[in-house]
Design a protein around this nucleic acid. Sequence first.
DNA 1: GGGACCATCTAACGCCGTTAGGGTATCCCT
DNA 2: AGGGATACCCTAACGGCGTTAGATGGTCCC
Lengths: 228, 228
Amino acid sequence: MASARKGARPRTPAITREALITAGLAVLTREGFDALSMRKVAAELGVQAASLYWHVQDKEELLDLLADSLLWDARKLKTDGDWAENLRAMAHAYRCHMNTHRDSARVLAGRIVPGPNLLYVLDTALGWLRTAGFSNADAAYATRMLATYVQGFVLQEQLPRSSLGPHGATPEAIGEAVTEAFRSAPVDQYPNVVALADFVGSGSADDQFAYGVDRLIEGLRTRLVGGG
Amino acid sequence: MASARKGARPRTPAITREALITAGLAVLTREGFDALSMRKVAAELGVQAASLYWHVQDKEELLDLLADSLLWDARKLKTDGDWAENLRAMAHAYRCHMNTHRDSARVLAGRIVPGPNLLYVLDTALGWLRTAGFSNADAAYATRMLATYVQGFVLQEQLPRSSLGPHGATPEAIGEAVTEAFRSAPVDQYPNVVALADFVGSGSADDQFAYGVDRLIEGLRTRLVGGG
DNA sequence: GGGACCATCTAACGCCGTTAGGGTATCCCT
DNA sequence: AGGGATACCCTAACGGCGTTAGATGGTCCC
């Protein structure tokens, strides 16, 4: 371990962009977004925090690197089927991939990183839609809409923060606390919330996600038959 | 100013939950989410940071307070019209309100605070949908879907972070940098992205938002005629 | 007048992102 | 072969952060 230290250049640098990403994802998965610090990532690489600044300008830039790597490589996606099936499969694969990394949605949140993975996904979806007969504007808007929905959904699904319930509660526990809060709201003021608490709460995330994706796609289909 | 200080209880406490919210929103609007610290909020109230912990358990709890206050009071919304018009108006009002506060979407992001404002909005939307003939599950799913979309959209619209472009760039500048990145991507690999760069980028946010909301509502409408 | 308690204070801990500046191994040029 | 340039990592430090412990002093009730 403590051999080639003390300011050496060991032929192949200890820190590369790839290593940064790997280490960052490791810390993220193990400790979560709030604990993702430059010092922790550096430690993961057996290195001092300040050394990271040789490879990266900011923490922001590190997060940008992580962000693109969290947009999975969509090349693995099977693309037989019509535009609707393909889009639906993509949405589900995207969500599924994001949920393999703790707090991934918070890394992505409000970040647009035109890295290779994003470019490929966008290009593929745009291609499907244009081929299907959507106008250019429709194709572009639809693609972004879908991305917005999926990211927004996963962000809520991973339930990053809330002071409800026990302090370091799991997403599921917080979700239950929210449902319970809905259920016990004043019935006279909020009858619908109380009546539908079990649906409105965070339960049955899979169903909710599928429902939203299907609604989006059906909404798109109405643009198609109208001529475009 | 420096009169009734030094550990006094000045009859009406200097810090109340309302004052906390006001001060928090002031700091947020003036300096943005990243600069929203307990110390700054305390300074806004002419008080030491530690004093806030008498009224609030965490910074998380303070953010929860801010979150509910960022869900505007929907009682002001006019509700004549059918379910589709009402829902559309609500979505636009929600977005509009969020954009009156800098970084509001980041406060809301991944946070579910069953405060009075959220409960009212939810209950109203659920009521519209049930009255229109949607099933309970559909009403609940649809409501959450709409909320997810609006929040996700505003989160991207406010473009919180990115190391693209100049460091402290405005959202618009970053948006242009993203569009430019799309436009100058390798044409042979990403022909659709390059061709539609102007649409795919962050330009014309109003159009994009309206498009998405309309698609969602059309998607919902298909559930209605099918019988529910 | 005196105790209880409310609401604020001061002081400090350990963590954070980031910068400045030092030092050594490797490469290139002569 | 020698020497300067460069790449890559180090140590040390700064100021800011969230949070806690404990002191302090007004205000209220008996």
